[in-house]
Simulated assay, not measured.
Amino acid sequence: MISKAIYRALHNAKQKKWGKTFWAFDIHETIVKPNWSTEKISTEFYPFAKEALQLISQRTDVTSILYTCTHPKELEKYLIFFRQNGIHFDYVNENPEVVSKNYGYFEKKPYFNVLFEDKAGFDAENDWKEVLKIINKNQEICSV
């Protein structure tokens, strides 16, 4: 499922000569397995999630957006945890690179091309392996 969204985003970027695409990532049940603790953040990655996100973080043609409802006190801990694991997000719950115009209003919903979200059908147990294959195959938009 996620592979179709990624291929469509990369294809559109190539066709429209965009320099990048925007990918939004939820945390719980998407990147890390939830622990349902209010004291300690979840730190167990789903299989292939860490490796895929490390590669995505290195791409200049992908802007990564952390798209989460995580409480602010936990959010900073997650950002530190991700950085310690070689994972970088350009923005949190926003995309200032795409502003509202006639075709869309992005003041309350940030623009993205691909959404990694368990509630939107992303299967963290299985989909990260496919994402990793796609990222390894498509080193940059021009290669699609």
Rank of each mutant, 00 (worst) to 15 (best):
67 Y>I: 00
58 Q>G: 11
90 D>T: 04
75 L>E: 07
87 I>N: 04
73 K>Q: 14
79 L>D: 03
69 C>S: 08
74 E>I: 00
85 N>K: 11
79 L>W: 07
55 L>V: 02
62 V>C: 14
83 R>K: 15
78 Y>V: 00
54 Q>R: 14
46 Y>L: 02
53 L>A: 02
49 A>D: 05
71 H>T: 05
51 E>H: 00
55 L>G: 01
54 Q>F: 04
90 D>I: 00
92 V>H: 08
72 P>N: 07
85 N>Y: 10
76 E>M: 10
85 N>G: 07
68 T>A: 11
57 S>E: 11
67 Y>P: 02
49 A>F: 11
44 E>V: 13
81 F>H: 07
79 L>S: 02
93 N>C: 05
43 T>Y: 07
52 A>G: 08
43 T>D: 09
76 E>Q: 15
49 A>V: 08
79 L>F: 02
53 L>D: 01
91 Y>S: 01
84 Q>D: 15
60 T>N: 15
63 T>S: 13
66 L>D: 04
49 A>W: 07
81 F>Q: 04
83 R>F: 11
87 I>S: 02
82 F>C: 11
77 K>F: 00
91 Y>K: 04
93 N>Q: 11
74 E>K: 12
78 Y>W: 02
49 A>S: 15
56 I>P: 06
73 K>E: 14
57 S>T: 12
55 L>N: 13
88 H>I: 13
68 T>R: 11
54 Q>S: 03
55 L>D: 13
93 N>P: 12
55 L>T: 02
72 P>I: 01
59 R>E: 01
83 R>H: 13
78 Y>N: 00
89 F>A: 05
86 G>S: 01
68 T>P: 12
60 T>F: 12
90 D>S: 10
77 K>Q: 15
54 Q>D: 02
66 L>R: 05
66 L>G: 03
62 V>T: 14
44 E>T: 14
46 Y>S: 06
54 Q>K: 14
52 A>L: 10
74 E>M: 04
64 S>E: 07
48 F>S: 08
58 Q>C: 09
64 S>K: 14
74 E>H: 13
92 V>C: 06
89 F>H: 04
67 Y>R: 11
77 K>M: 12
87 I>R: 04
80 I>V: 13
81 F>K: 09
65 I>K: 11
71 H>Q: 13
46 Y>G: 05
79 L>Q: 14
89 F>K: 04
72 P>F: 03
58 Q>L: 15
67 Y>D: 13
90 D>P: 06
71 H>F: 11
61 D>R: 12
50 K>F: 01
52 A>N: 09
55 L>S: 04
75 L>A: 02
87 I>D: 01
88 H>E: 10
45 F>T: 06
80 I>C: 00
43 T>P: 05
57 S>V: 08
64 S>I: 08
64 S>C: 15
71 H>E: 14
68 T>N: 11
47 P>M: 04
82 F>T: 10
45 F>V: 03
83 R>G: 00
77 K>H: 12
58 Q>H: 13
87 I>W: 06
59 R>F: 00
85 N>W: 08
75 L>N: 05
89 F>D: 05
87 I>H: 03
76 E>A: 12
87 I>M: 03
71 H>N: 10
65 I>A: 06
76 E>W: 03
84 Q>A: 07
